[in-house]
Design a protein around this nucleic acid. Structure first.
Lengths: 225, 225
DNA sequence: ATTATCTATAGATCTATAGATAATGC
DNA sequence: ATTATCTATAGATCTATAGATAATGC
């Protein structure tokens, strides 16, 4: 995983002076920790193991972080940076097509598919973080949702979507975000019946409504008796 | 929290013979553990604390469970039993109205609202469980989704909903389940803009489509240029 | 001289159990 | 006599650091 520079670099203090070294060593630490955390979870991973996997001594680990929690925070930030980077990158492809929103959903869901272990990790361990950092991680979640809010707003403004009020837009954006996550934490089951492309298709229909005929809509069903 | 008898009673062995005593003591243990786990999380709670909170000695705790993991499993099972019980109970109210599905969603979301700490707990700690029990907990998740699958199937069969294939029904049921959960783990944010009743209303519109005019539907927006 | 790194371990827990005691029922 | 309960602690970790060593740059 590429370690995109993030807020975390400033937040987490290090004993080491050389900035470039901090960056590189933390990259090693993050990569090692991500692997172990995904495999065994945060609590069952020891700082010794992280150091060994990163190829450094336990002592040195503590020159680059002040606590095991720091490692988790670095990991969460790195994952978010990666997701954000990939989503931003993918969304460039999406713009321009007939259905901008469908394209965005598609690219985002593909990112969720590829990063599912990572997304799941953040979900499960966020609570472990000290409050100060938990907030940061949650803010990151919002930032991603914000991308969809903005897109929906624009589409509603230009008339590409029916008029939607702020609340509706907000919620639909959250829904899209979370339905992407759903693929990560229900994959153990959904994977039996869906490939990611099926999932994208049916979910897009669900979110946008089938283009031919309404989706589950009261007025498209039989009249009430 | 009422401790509805569940699978767990048989799964988790006890040194104590008296069945009724097992039931009562485990109820104490579960109640204590739920409280502590919600407050501090599973890993930061010690067996000593659980015992103290339950009003028994640490030694006695280990007469009723074989490990700390056992406690977590008992807790997860109890929460599921409670959710299931409440949903089943709530759904009785829902049936009969004009829009059965909307009623079901409403009752289910209300349960999510009231049990949000508990649902969140299960989400976050399931991964900690040994595989054998993790599976059980995940099966429980499916059981709940199954309730919606069944309801959707019936409504599609009777023509109260437009025809939907198995895959679509399956996915919509999952969506409903997860959008209920979404209220539990994004509440910290959603709560700023929505009361539970707002949330129910907008989500129901989203899932069922607005009854007046389509929801976000390609064919209800302006024609493609 | 300063910065980075390693080795070795202090100190703090925490789970789970062994063995002693109290309560119960024949 | 059997079952339930408690007290006290063995044994196993694990985090974080102190102090020693190696590398770097003036």
């Amino acid at each position: 995983m590429k370690n995109h520079k993030s807020q975390a670099t400033k937040d987490v203090p290090s004993q080491v002076k050389n900035q470039d070294l901090i960056y590189r060593r933390r990259m090693q630490i993050i990569d090692a920790a991500v692997k172990l955390f995904i495999d065994k979870g945060f609590h069952k991973t020891t700082t010794r193991e992280i150091a060994r996997e990163a190829g450094i001594s336990t002592g040195l680990l503590y020159e680059y972080v002040a606590s095991k929690d720091d490692v988790l925070y670095l990991v969460c930030e790195a994952i978010h940076a990666e997701v954000e980077h990939r989503v931003a990158h993918a969304l460039k492809k999406a713009t321009g097509g007939r259905d901008v929103l469908a394209g965005m959903i598609r690219e985002y869901f593909l990112v969720c598919d590829r990063m599912s272990d990572h997304i799941l990790l953040v979900y499960q361990e966020t609570r472990t973080l000290p409050p100060r950092w938990r907030k940061r991680v949650l803010e990151n979640e919002l930032k991603l949702t914000g991308v969809f809010v903005k897109a929906l707003q624009e589409l509603a403004d230009t008339g590409d979507l029916p008029p939607l009020d702020k609340q509706e837009i907000e919620l639909i954006a959250h829904n899209i975000t979370v339905l992407g996550h759903m693929w990560t934490f229900r994959r153990w089951f959904l994977g039996r019946h869906f490939k990611i492309e099926d999932y994208i298709k049916v979910q897009t229909d669900f979110i946008l409504g089938k283009s031919t005929g309404g989706y589950i809509r009261a007025d498209s069903a039989k009249e009430e008796s």
